Computed example of a mutant assay.
Amino acid sequence: MLIGLVAALALGSGQARDPAPTILSDIIVNAPPNEARALGFIDRVAAPPSGRRLARWERSLCVSVAGLDAAYAQFIVDRVTAVGASVGLDPGQAGCRPDVLIIFTADPDAAAGRLIDEDLETFRPVRYGATDRGEAALEQFQHSDAPVRWWHVSAPVSILTGEVMMGMEDGPAIMNAPNASRIGASTREALQRAIIIVDANQIRQVSFGALGEYLGVVTLAQVEPGADLTGYQSVLNLFAGSPGQRITDWDQSYLQALYRARGDQLRYVQQATDIAERMAERAMRSGTMPDSGESRD
């Protein structure tokens, strides 16, 4: 599907010990300060489809970049796959079928509109939800004024086999998985594809290396567009007055915890708590919560 989108564009491509209440999805969690701070970050940044858990890529990641000269496209591919490798994802081999399409264009609204018009099922394979953030979010994606916009499609897969457990045809979502136990779900959420559009007119003041790492984070995680991360050091602040911001300990801590958290949590709030606990444990081992935001070289 993503291969078809590249062809349609006719563009060049390159391959956080005093308990304190923290509110998360209407549930109050008593957590140590480090864990509470991590929960605050997750609450701002995480954006799964309504009623679903956070998804992640399985095993490998194949990235394609369109709209840049080959050398620059390969630089972005390398940066994104390096972020993927940091959480254990293998880079796609030469000629792999793209999971991620990153488009650089001077007319992002037109590019988004054309892609949606020509292949809506790539964006919304199940028209009644469950795999994406819904019609209103897609409208926002198409008409966003952000420097970078992204769209993820996910699906529940079997904990045992990795097989997609949902009918992806147009119509109500059909779950084929057996009923979950009270202890754990029989499925986990897996990312199926991501489409990212970069407004070439709005990236001239940012570091290209930082941009590649920013794209890596929004590729690997379902991030809330326009998330207010004031008070957190993150590469996601790249377009919020930090044009040289590189990927930080906060970003790495979140991604590592997301990709190591249990996949069979029954609800999003359990998953978010698991991720926050792992972030806090990592901070305890290193002796500090990643507040300084020191960037990686």
Rank of each mutant, 00 (worst) to 15 (best):
M1C: 09
L5H: 08
A7K: 15
A10S: 15
G14F: 05
A16V: 13
D26C: 08
P32D: 11
F41A: 02
I42A: 00
R44E: 13
R44F: 04
A46R: 00
S50H: 12
R52W: 07
R53T: 11
W57Y: 10
R59G: 01
A70V: 10
R79E: 07
V80H: 03
A85C: 10
V87Q: 04
C96F: 05
V100G: 04
I103F: 12
P108D: 06
R114V: 06
E118S: 07
L120N: 14
G129T: 09
E135Y: 14
S144A: 03
A146I: 01
V148W: 00
R149M: 05
V157Y: 10
I159C: 11
T161C: 07
T161M: 09
G162T: 13
G162A: 07
E163P: 05
M168T: 07
E169S: 09
E169W: 11
D170T: 04
G171Y: 08
M175Q: 13
A177N: 08
P178D: 08
N179Q: 11
N179C: 03
R182V: 14
R182Q: 10
I183S: 07
I183Q: 09
G184K: 14
T187M: 02
A194I: 03
A194F: 04
I197Y: 06
V198R: 00
A200I: 02
V206A: 07
F208H: 12
G209F: 05
L215N: 06
V217T: 06
V217Q: 02
V223K: 00
P225S: 06
L229P: 08
Q233C: 12
Q233F: 15
Q233I: 05
S234D: 00
L236S: 07
G241I: 07
G244E: 14
G244R: 03
Q245L: 06
S253L: 00
L255F: 00
Q256N: 09
Q256E: 03
L258E: 06
A261C: 11
A261N: 10
Q270P: 03
Q271T: 01
A272G: 13
I275L: 04
A276H: 07
A276N: 15
R285H: 11
R285I: 15
S286G: 08
G287I: 07
